[in-house]
């Protein structure tokens, strides 16, 4: 089987996870103009909660649900307790707070769950599917990963584009003051935005944990690659985040596959620099000249 084909299949699964992380970052950026550097750590923590449930005898799917629901709650709590009080302070304050939260969660996880490296069970077999007589390097779990990321993205798309709630959330993100004048409870919309973003991050966590092993900093790379994907896509665009995340997945597996895995991170950096030199505001950002 051609190497390119193998790498492409790996790339799309990896990319789906980076896309989810990128989307989580972009959702928060759009709603509150903050890069949530704790996004990865929050996903790490919810993945620990999931593995905690599974180790205590619940089925995989209960653990999966625990991750998503705790992601939702954690996002809401972080917005209410950490972000809201410094809402009107300079953006840098919030960024520093998210960095603080990152350190806090990465210190709390080993205290709460033990410091040893854990494995995380996949929902489905990770043995490649058989096509006729040959085996392709694409397992049922890869399919599940891809499917659930796509499903969540479609659900978000419907929520934001087709529902009144989504309309209120978009309005709050674009212009909180005018939205409040229209009777929209912007505070609640922001909480919900953080909650949903954190749910998407939590999904990325449970999906990548089986192939990475679980330890307190296991999501750090995913955050960096997801962030790179988000910036590639223009930071302001949900579609851009997804495409950027996928591009990162492909790029990293191609670089790793053809040039050795040591170069993966360097490769990511080179791509980022190259794209930003050609399109400084990212691939999908819309620069609008406002009429006065």
């Amino acid at each position: 089987m051609s190497r390119f084909f193998v790498l492409t299949l790996n790339g799309v699964t990896q990319g789906a996870i980076y896309a989810a992380m990128a989307l989580a970052l972009v959702m928060i950026w759009r709603a509150t103009k903050v890069i949530n550097f704790a996004q990865g750590a929050m996903a790490m923590f919810t993945t620990y909660l999931a593995v905690f449930a599974i180790e205590h005898g619940t089925p995989y799917w209960v653990g999966f649900l625990v991750a998503l629901v705790s992601g939702l709650l954690l996002g809401a709590i972080v917005e209410r307790v950490i972000v809201r009080p410094v809402e009107s302070a300079p953006a840098l304050n919030v960024v520093i707070l998210t960095l603080g939260l990152l350190l806090f969660l990465e210190a709390l996880a080993p205290m709460a769950f033990g410091g040893q490296i854990r494995s995380f069970p996949p929902a489905f077999s990770i043995v490649g599917l058989r096509l006729g007589t040959s085996q392709v390097p694409f397992s049922p779990f890869d399919l599940f990963t891809l499917g659930s990321v796509v499903a969540v993205m479609l659900l978000l798309l419907v929520l934001f584009q087709k529902t009144d709630l989504g309309l209120r959330m978009r309005a709050s993100a674009f212009n909180p003051e005018v939205s409040r004048l229209l009777g929209i409870r912007v505070g609640r919309m922001l909480t919900l935005g953080w909650a949903l973003a954190s749910l998407v991050g939590a999904l990325a966590g449970v999906l990548i944990a089986p192939s990475l092993l679980l330890y307190p900093t296991f999501m750090d790379d995913v955050l960096v690659f997801g962030f790179t994907g988000a910036v590639l896509g223009g930071l302001d665009s949900a579609v851009g985040a997804v495409v950027g995340g996928l591009l990162m997945g492909f790029a990293l597996t191609y670089v790793g596959g053809y040039f050795g895995s040591d170069l993966e991170t360097v490769g990511a950096l080179v791509i980022l620099i190259a794209v930003l030199m050609v399109r400084p505001s990212g691939l999908f950002s819309v620069q609008r000249v406002r009429q006065v």
């Binding site: 009144d164 309309l167 209120r168 978009r170 309005a171 939205s179 229209l182 009777g183 929209i184």
Partner: peptide, 9 residues
Amino acid sequence: ENLRLGGLW
């Protein structure tokens, strides 16, 4: 969307 927002509440 702008118009609809007015009366959503």
